[in-house]
Amino acid sequence: MFFELAILAYLVDLFFGEFPCKHPVVWMGDFISAFERRFYRDRILPGALLVTGLIALTLLISTTLVYLCGFLPAWMSLIILAIFASTGLAMNMLHASVAALLTAKQPKQALRYLVSRDTEDMSDTQIYKAGLETWAENLSDGVIAPLFYLLLFGLPGIAVYKAINTMDSMIAYKTERYFYFGKTAAIVDDIANYIPARLTALLIVSLATDKQRAWQCLRRDGKKMESPNAGYPIAAMAGALGVALGGDARYHGQVKHKPTLGLPIHPVDKSALNQALQMKMGINIMILALLAIGVGLS
């Protein structure tokens, strides 16, 4: 287990956030776009080759970096690897991006950068609901899952996970263009996020004021969504806040019918989103405490 690397990488992300250089995820996105332009066919095989190719390339680069750092003093190697690993974590960026909905003059415009759903005709309730769902779901994709694979496999683990997650965000849509081309990416992402999504849900429940309600909503509603993973942190967040999330949303001009998660005890408004975002401190404390325990025991 790479506890020292994980705790240092998490601290780097918390204190420094994104570095002013081209992010590794952007490089991954460029690779995906270039492959798609050259080899796209809406068939499973080209999509599977993309997944295999990007994972192999990411693994090669990350393991080479780890190998080269092995020639450095241990403390210097740890710092360099932690800086690279921190680029796979997104707590600061995620929190700031969702919090921008609270102060933006045009929240629909701000939301457009966070979600793939259509935002033009959204009401305030729908905007804050989308913000809450983004916060809950991406706590798994952007924080817990990367940490999970960093702890298990070091820098190659978090790098490969980010490659998988980037492909999912770019091509794993059930649209006419990507139905078959993105199928492998979607399946691999579902597998990679299976455990982290459930860990994220448990983390949210542990921080809820009404833990019993959050746990009940998680157990009752976590499996309702089409995604095998997304429903768990969203249901836990809905229960923690006492709000109803999910429901119909418009994607690429078409309405997608989704189940309702949680209980409509309180309205989904700016106050609910602010309450959810205030969990950041508790999440940071719990993650750092668990990592510190891991460092002490390792």
Rank of each mutant, 00 (worst) to 15 (best):
Leu5Trp: 11
Ala6His: 10
Leu11Tyr: 11
Asp13Ala: 09
Phe16Met: 06
Pro20Thr: 06
Pro24Asp: 03
Ala34Gln: 13
Ala34Tyr: 13
Glu36Tyr: 13
Tyr40Trp: 12
Asp42Lys: 02
Pro46Cys: 02
Gly47Glu: 00
Gly53Asp: 01
Ala56Glu: 00
Thr58His: 04
Leu59Asn: 04
Leu60Ile: 06
Leu60Arg: 01
Ile61His: 00
Thr63His: 00
Val66Gly: 01
Cys69Val: 03
Pro73Leu: 02
Pro73Lys: 04
Ala74Glu: 14
Met76Gly: 05
Ile80Met: 10
Leu81Thr: 08
Leu89Ser: 12
Met91Asn: 10
Asn92Gly: 10
Leu94Lys: 12
Ala99Leu: 12
Ala100Ser: 15
Lys108Glu: 15
Arg117Ile: 13
Glu120Thr: 09
Gln126Ile: 14
Glu133Ser: 09
Asn138His: 07
Ser140His: 01
Ser140Ala: 09
Val143Ile: 10
Ile144Phe: 02
Ala145Ser: 10
Tyr161Asp: 11
Asp168Ile: 03
Ala172Cys: 06
Ala172Phe: 13
Lys174Ala: 03
Glu176Cys: 07
Arg177Glu: 06
Tyr178Asn: 01
Phe179Trp: 14
Phe181Cys: 06
Lys183Ala: 12
Ile191Glu: 00
Ile195Asp: 06
Arg198Glu: 03
Arg198Val: 06
Ala201Met: 10
Ala208Asp: 02
Thr209Arg: 13
Asp210Ile: 01
Asp210Gly: 03
Gln212Asn: 13
Gln212Thr: 11
Gln216Thr: 12
Leu218Cys: 06
Glu226Tyr: 07
Pro228Phe: 04
Ala230Trp: 10
Pro233Ser: 02
Pro233Glu: 03
Ala235Gln: 04
Met237Val: 08
Ala244Met: 07
Ala244Pro: 04
Asp248Ser: 14
Asp248Asn: 15
Asp248Val: 12
His252Tyr: 14
Val255Cys: 06
His257Trp: 01
Gly262Trp: 07
His266Gln: 10
Asp269Arg: 05
Gln275Leu: 14
Ala276Thr: 09
Leu277Glu: 13
Lys280Val: 15
Ile283Gln: 08
Met286Phe: 13
Leu288Glu: 12
Leu291Cys: 06
Leu297Tyr: 13
Ser298Phe: 09
